[in-house]
Amino acid sequence: MSVQATARITAAPDGCGSTALPVLESDGPLALRRTRSAAAGRARVTVVGAMSAPLGGDRLAVEVRAEAGARLTVDSAAATVALPGAAQDAGPASYDIRIEAGPGAEVRWLPEQLVCAHRSALTMTTRAELAPTARLVLREEQVLGRHGEPTGTLTTRLTVHRAGRPLLDQQLAYGPGASGGWDGPAVLGGHRAVGQLLVVDPAYEEEPVPPTSLGPTAVLTPLTGPGVLVTALAPDARLLRGLLDEALERLSPR
């Protein structure tokens, strides 16, 4: 039996210099907890995987809205593991993330890795709509297969609009269900962990970040618009996180 669930978070200034969460709705396997934030003025929500998901056929979604001036961090307690469903014909699971950030709002979306287990099939869509003065820090990490096993099939799409105009649109497809060449010398070159770190900050309009090579398998690239994308490949999840942490450190406000 596949699951359909949508969790919702709305963050808004509480009027006393901090951020309140007028909406915090868990649903099905997506349990949300307000957790202690390290930064003043910021709310933090942790997605707690209350049961193993997504399985084949599941349709999961998280909707995040940060109203004008709100500051919100969303992270997760553990990696998300895409697993095959019990039913052979369940079809791929879907996991949709919607992020909306209003004027002056800041959203930090920093979940743990997405692990594609053998025989799993998942379509993940992340869509962010940003006001011109909104800030976004977004990290995505895909780990192809648990330790020592072949990967499942994963398709991800990351679409970011700022002030209604396209800023970034990227689609990645890996695994037995993907088109040929995904593992080859143009795409992954045999790497099993892939990550993106996107930082959108209107400050980049004044102070653009130059493109920077972060070693043989990672690069920091300024987008057309006030955004920077870090693209990284690594043999495993731990090394990938190291590359992205270093990049995040480099991009953190001075």
Binding site: Q170, V187, A218, L233
Partner: peptide, 17 residues
Amino acid sequence: PAASAPLLDITAEAHAA
């Protein structure tokens, strides 16, 4: 579609330099 290839993006910047 927006299909992309991480290695092509990663190596293009280094190669241009």
